[in-house]
Design a protein around this nucleic acid. Structure first.
Length: 447
RNA sequence: GUGGGUGUAGCUCAGCUGGUAGAGCGCCGCGUUGUGGUCGCGGAUGUCGCGGGUUCGAGUCCCGUCACUCACCCCA
């Protein structure tokens, strides 16, 4: 049977997978460091839950069915989840009695969307989410905490500077209402196109949508405000628009930005241009760009929703943020910005003198492994030149030679050619060689 | 989902208006009778994405299809 790739379902080679696993390890460790336990939800949800109450089904959902299934109208139709928020909301409702609130969790899983793939955009991809959910009310300080966790993740990953752009839905909402604009959502949607079509065209579109020219200009002026400190508040005030919702939004955003300044300076910016397409966000919203690669879009986004879940009696507000792990890796690996120092976890290749000596080599390997040094025994007792090349082609830095003739155990660093007597019980590689390293390519840009 | 671009050796690519497939790097062997990388000599690279069509003849033209990619859409 012929094999061929399936569009949008990427697979990595071992060296790339090493980079991915490093990312996943860092993400998980950081989430846990901040006290977010892990959960995993099933891959499928009932299709009607995925579609939501509104029925706006532009989400390309993969349906799941058994090939042998008969026509049985009773069965619920299942679909693969397209994010981790919808399944999480269901999980909270289902397990509310067993959870303690405010409940925080992290979740790192594959999700599926049937959209047309591009670089950094796939049909099967991994997201890493954290959310905090509470019963009835959610304290606003969580809106500041959640991006700080992500800032820490980015600080620990071997990538350039990530900048989390933060805004609050209430700011444009209150501002528009204060201006007398009725269609808040429609206006937001047009303003959201600023990046793509520029202020001139956005202004025209707003006028086409029924705004007066000065209203449109005010909207553009608001969207242009961006500051890494709290100065955005005064700049909004200068525009002279007043509305209680605007005040709430400014206060909330100021609190988030202040927390960023206190705990992770340089990682956040108040940016009143971002709006987020998703309409369930009701407060703080986040997007994240890699500095110098803004055209790659957002790698991490989320926000506050007043009703993540509701069972009719109780409402669960939440705040969450999600890293697009596959997008990040797809771009960084695809552009050659990241590689692994070797394509195997093995730090040492234990050479084999002859088949009769394999047992001796295996004992060496066992002793090294007992001290947590990853190693592999040579597949064939080939000439040593061949065995060295076997290691070289995989990036394994050391070759261990068992005793032969007069000489005892020796280990060779094949990068320097230096070969020394060694003792299985004590010889230790330099710490940087113990595990594969993630190597960042130098970037030519001077940003 | 809509519309464009691309698809030749492991990699980067060349191949004129259709005439039986090339380079560099890498790979393998030997020089080097247990120690790779340098050097020298030699060797193999391949259903020219896949299928069909036109033609005496298709890598080259046409159609379809798959994959990658770009824009839209949407978003991670």
């Amino acid at each position: 049977m012929k094999v061929s790739p399936i569009s949008g379902f990427p697979e990595y080679l071992p060296a790339e997978r090493i980079v991915e696993q490093h990312f996943l390890d860092v993400i998980r460790e950081t989430f846990e460091l901040h006290g977010f336990p892990s959960i995993e939800t099933r891959a499928v949800e009932p299709v009607d839950r995925l579609l939501g109450k509104g029925g706006d089904s532009d989400k390309e959902i993969y349906a799941v069915s058994r090939l042998a299934a008969e026509e049985s109208p009773g069965d619920a139709e299942l679909g693969l989840h397209f994010d981790l928020t919808v399944p999480f909301a269901r999980y909270v409702l289902e397990n509310a009695g067993h959870l303690t609130f405010p409940f925080r969790r992290h979740q790192i899983q594959k999700v599926w969307r049937g959209e047309r793939p591009q670089e950094g955009r796939y049909r099967e991809f991994t997201q890493a989410d954290i959310d905090v959910v509470d019963v009835g009310d959610l304290a606003p300080h969580f809106e500041a905490e959640v991006p700080l966790v992500m800032a820490e993740v980015f600080r620990r990953l071997p990538i350039g500077r990530m900048l989390i752009q933060v805004s609050n839905r209430k700011i444009p909402e209150g501002f528009y209402l204060g201006l007398g604009i009725q269609d808040v959502v429609g206006t937001l949607r047009v303003v959201d196109k600023l990046d793509k079509i520029g202020p001139g065209k956005v202004g025209d579109l707003l006028v086409d949508a029924g705004l007066r020219r000065e209203q449109a200009d005010q909207c553009l002026a608001l969207a242009a405000i961006r500051s890494e400190d709290l100065s955005f508040v005064d700049r909004v005030r200068t525009l002279g628009v007043e509305h209680p919702t605007l005040d709430e939004g400014l206060e909330a955003l100021a609190a988030v930005i202040q927390a960023g300044l206190d705990n992770a300076p340089g990682s956040m910016v108040a940016d009143l241009r971002i709006a987020r397409g998703l309409d369930y966000y009701t407060g703080t919203i986040y997007e994240t760009q890699l500095v110098g690669h803004e055209t790659w879009g957002s790698f991490c986004s989320g926000g506050r929703y007043d009703s993540l879940a509701s069972d009719g009696r109780t409402t669960y507000p939440g705040v969450g943020i999600s890293i697009g792990v596959s997008r990040l890796l797809g771009l960084l690996l695809g552009k050659g910005l990241l590689t692994a120092s070797r394509s195997t976890p093995a730090c040492i290749l234990v050479a084999v003198n002859d088949e009769g000596g394999r047992a001796r080599s295996t004992k060496v390997a066992t002793a090294l492994r007992a001290r947590a040094i990853a190693c592999e025994v040579a597949p064939r007792p080939a000439k040593f030149g061949k065995q060295i090349r076997y290691a070289e082609r995989r990036g394994i830095p050391f070759v261990w030679f068992p005793p032969i003739g007069e000489t005892g155990d020796q280990v060779k660093d094949i990068r320097t050619g230096r070969q020394v007597d060694a003792e299985v019980g004590s010889w230790t590689p330099p710490p940087e060689d113990l595990r594969p390293q993630i190597v960042r390519a130098k970037e030519a840009d001077a940003t």
